[in-house]
Amino acid sequence: MVKYLIKLSRWLLLLLVVIFFAVQVPSTFLTFDNISNVLRVSAFLVILALGQGIVIISGNGGIDLSNGSVAALSSCISALMISGGVNIILAVIVGLLVGAGIGLVNGLLVSVVKLPPFVATYGMDSAVRGAAYILMSGTIVYGVFPDSFRFMGSGTLFGIGVPIYIAAICAVVLIFLMVKTIWGRNVYSIGNNKRAAEISGIGVNRLQLSVFVLNGVIAAFVGILYVARLNAAEPVLGTDFSLQSIGAVVLGGISLAGGKGSLLNAVVGAILISVINNGLTLVGVSSHWQTFVFGAVIVGAILLEVLMSFLEKKYVKSDG
């Protein structure tokens, strides 16, 4: 019983939050339009949380504080190319390559230079954000994007937002990658015990490089999706991406120590954040209190993780 409670704890928390807001604002919260809006908004955070989750699972204090600035610079580069008449597909590919390149630098700083991930990615965050400001020179690229590009960020298909489909596909692919492939199992291995993974022959440095490159591509992709949604590109995009994605991962129960956690639960964590923000808005709570609630929820999630770990050690392992 305790084992299943631990596994389903995040889903139960999401259910309780949904029930709470459904009772508070029954006329609007559970409508199709509102649920669709919540899922559409959460789709971007879901994709970010998947990438951040993989970095954190890889251990060694793994965390990426640069994904917001990566999203900004990559999307600005793609937007400038599109506004200059460059083929959309080529512009998107270049933006993704920029994200991959920044991720590669992050990975080199962590795996080769041996900087703590927090320090490496914090420094890169400032440098990359500065590059975005320099590139844009105080301008905003607005209203120049064709409908074919905007469709992936703001379009609908069968009444459901296209970003929801994209997030679902990303979730399926990345969860499969982590659960069913040797690469994913090795990521969990280095997160659990880096030294043991090295002894067993796992190329830890290459693996860490690949994790940060993948997260860079994911961040760049989300930035491009945001431009397609907002019909605008500017260097301030994604200033809260890092904290939001880390918050979703923590809410999903992925251990900040690495080597433990489910990407599926990170998806639940991202949706939970969007549900809470949406519900508080409908109830009429001010943005200041929403920020306070967000922080309190994160602290509560950490305490919940401590409780779940205690229950797992005391009951589940003893039963096994």
Score class of each variant (00 low, 15 high):
Y142T: 12
G159M: 08
P116I: 03
S126L: 14
V128A: 01
G107M: 03
G130L: 08
G153Y: 06
Y142V: 12
A131N: 06
P163H: 11
S154W: 06
Y122I: 15
A132L: 10
V113L: 11
G130A: 12
D125R: 02
I134Y: 13
A131D: 05
A120C: 03
L108H: 00
I164S: 03
V113R: 03
V162K: 09
T139N: 14
I160Q: 10
V119C: 01
S154R: 15
P116N: 08
M124R: 04
L157H: 10
S111A: 15
I160D: 06
G159W: 03
L109I: 04
I164D: 04
R150S: 15
P146M: 10
V110K: 09
L108T: 00
P163E: 09
M136A: 08
I160A: 10
V119R: 02
S148G: 15
V144F: 11
A132N: 12
M136F: 08
G161M: 01
I164N: 04
T156M: 11
G155I: 08
F145P: 06
M124F: 04
S154F: 08
G155R: 05
S126G: 09
P163F: 05
P116W: 04
Y122H: 14
V141A: 14
G130W: 07
G161I: 00
G155N: 07
A120M: 00
Y133C: 05
V112S: 05
P146D: 15
G123H: 01
V110C: 12
M124G: 11
V112C: 04
G153Q: 06
V144K: 15
I140S: 14
V113Y: 04
R129Y: 14
A127K: 01
G123E: 00
D125I: 00
G138C: 11
F118S: 07
I140V: 15
D125W: 04
S154N: 14
I140M: 13
A132D: 09
Y122A: 14
V110G: 06
Y133W: 13
L157A: 11
S126H: 05
F145V: 04
V110Y: 09
T139V: 08
V119N: 02
S111Y: 05
I134L: 15
V113W: 04
V128G: 00
R150M: 13
V128I: 05
V119P: 00
P146C: 14
R150V: 07
A120L: 02
G107F: 00
D147E: 15
L135C: 13
I134S: 11
A120G: 02
K114Q: 06
G155C: 11
G123C: 00
V128M: 03
F145S: 05
L157M: 13
D125M: 07
R129K: 15
K114W: 01
A120N: 03
G155M: 07
G107P: 00
V141W: 09
V144I: 07
G159P: 08
V128R: 01
V128S: 03
L135F: 15
F118P: 07
S137I: 07
G138L: 11
L157K: 07
S111L: 05
L157T: 08
F149S: 10
V162Q: 10
L157Q: 08
G123M: 02
M152V: 15
F151C: 10
S137D: 15
L108Q: 00
L135H: 12
T139M: 06
S126E: 09
I134A: 14
A131K: 05
G161S: 04
L135Y: 13
Y133V: 01
